[in-house]
């Protein structure tokens, strides 16, 4: 079973990468971009027996650093 986990920077945490990309988009002439925030998509292929709870634990312990990041497990209840 494929699971997708989205890891994003918490609001208020400065994103230097996003800022640089925003700058580049401006420079390329794309108008109207208000903000860019870069996150990470992690695709896991897991056995059907792996619960959302277990996925949450994976996020808490390794996949995300909850000091600076939020995570969302796609399709989780």
């Amino acid at each position: 079973m494929k699971k997708r986990i989205f890891v994003t920077l918490k609001p208020g945490v400065l994103d230097p990468q996003g800022r640089a990309v925003h700058h580049a988009l401006d420079g390329m002439g794309f108008d109207g971009v208000n903000d860019v925030r870069i996150g990470r998509l992690i695709e896991l292929d897991v056995a059907d027996t792996v619960t959302d709870e277990a996925l949450g634990e994976m996020c808490e312990k390794l996949l995300a650093n909850t000091v600076i990041e939020n995570y969302r497990i796609e399709g989780a209840e």
Partner: peptide
């Protein structure tokens, strides 16, 4: 040490990249 939560906070990419 920060990732292991022995110390608070996190170390992020340098602000100027």
């Amino acid at each position: 040490l920060a990732e292991a939560r022995l110390l608070p906070g996190a170390l992020m990419r340098n602000a100027n990249q």
